[in-house]
Design a protein around this nucleic acid. Sequence first.
DNA 1: AACGCGTTCAACCGCAGGAGA
DNA 2: TTCTCCTGCGGTTGAACGCGT
Length: 215
Amino acid sequence: MEGRNEYKKGLWTEEEDRILMDYIRVHGKGKWNRIAKMSGLKRGGKSCRLRWINYLSPSVKRGGFSEEEEDLIIRLHNLLGNRWSLIAGRVPGRTDNQVKNHWNTHLSKKLGIKNGKTKVSVSTQSFSRESVANCIVHSESNPEVLASGCNRESTVETIIEDKSHAVFSFTSTQEVTMDDNNSSYWFSNDDLSLYAPYLVEPVDEFALDFVWDSL
DNA sequence: AACGCGTTCAACCGCAGGAGA
DNA sequence: TTCTCCTGCGGTTGAACGCGT
């Protein structure tokens, strides 16, 4: 059906927009496959639905995102992850596609998030649960060695916490060194959410002393 | 002016789940 | 219960655009 080449693809023309608008104005939305057939458009139902929801609907807000909208999206994304429709549902006038695109092209860069990973910088190599000031990192291959260095891309394997420390155990393709005290590590957001949610969603009482580095 | 390259975002794709026959 | 149709979702693609050389 839609998989075959009987439907037009690509950008919509003004004429197609007008036809779809006129049809919906008279008959209402829904039953998109029927609309596609009855309106005379050579478009699939899915394409018609998407065009209406993301562009033609009067409830869609055009133009750039405000700071308030961005802030809301960031907070909702921390809470919900990539559940764009849920996020969009709480940002008036914005569609899931708009929110998703804006996140991928602007906000992920702004926050230093790439490929689902977040860069966490710590000022020293010890990590106190009370002050949450520092971070102890042990290498998987050599548990005795404190890891340091910049931009190490890592996968958290385990994290052990007691009252005063959190110990990340991770794999890394890079050699672990013991040099500088100014370290940055890349951890997947999933790992952080699971093992150290207070890093992903800062909580005031922990008085986090870390920086979300921008790229 | 022409070209190459990176960025943006509209649109597509595959899949899952719900509704109803 | 099973099947078909419809809708909605998240990831991906590619055309259009802007900018630097």
